[in-house]
């Protein structure tokens, strides 16, 4: 009897996995960088070519790094949420203008508002590669020691911000 039950057993196990699989998003790739030091960079600022922004400038604070571009539609979607976050002042948001035209980026910020403390320009997308960016917008939460604690792939939404990001920021700031 047992060997005749074997196919059924295999099938049952498979159905179990498929059921769990339905709840997962196959397109989302967890970043191996979480828990690791944020890659260093030093890039010109969007509003002032002469100055640079580098990773060390943010040491000692909990901050958000947001990769965006004026050509990216998801960035428009999440923009109001970033503006709210910036207004609330929980943590500074730094922008990374990813593979963009300078004048278009400036115009975009003028039109929709600027939630960023400083915007750095990653014209060639190299810093993006260092951070494992594969689709803007992407947002990183980085702690006081410069370690990446969280990565959001795709636009931020209210639920993620209130349930994940804000509590995480408070926790990291308390340390």
């Amino acid at each position: 009897m047992s060997r005749f039950l074997l196919p059924l057993t295999i099938f049952a196990v498979m159905v179990g996995f498929l059921a769990v699989g339905l709840t997962l998003n196959p397109r989302e790739i967890p970043s191996p960088l979480i828990g690791k030091a944020a890659p260093a960079f030093s890039l010109p600022q969007l509003h002032d070519d002469g100055k640079t922004l580098s990773l060390d400038d943010m040491k000692g604070q909990v901050w958000l790094l947001n990769f965006w571009a004026s050509w990216c539609s998801g960035c428009r979607t999440e923009h109001p949420i970033l503006m709210d976050l910036a207004r609330s002042g929980v943590a500074p948001i730094y922008g990374m203008d990813y593979k963009d035209q300078k004048h278009e980026a400036l115009a975009w910020l003028d039109q929709w508002g600027n939630p960023y403390q400083v915007v750095a320009v990653d014209a060639a997308g190299r810093v993006g590669i260092d951070y494992g960016v594969y689709g803007v917008p992407e947002t990183y939460v980085i702690d006081k020691q410069g370690v990446i604690r969280y990565k959001q792939i795709g636009p931020l939404d209210d639920e993620t911000v209130t349930k994940k990001i804000l509590p995480l920021i408070q926790e990291l700031q308390a340390k």
Binding site: M1, F4, L5, P7, L8, F11, A12, V15
Partner: peptide, 9 residues
């Protein structure tokens, strides 16, 4: 599939 494999068993 489960039903038919059960019938098979």
């Amino acid at each position: 599939i489960g039903g038919s494999l059960l019938l098979y068993a």
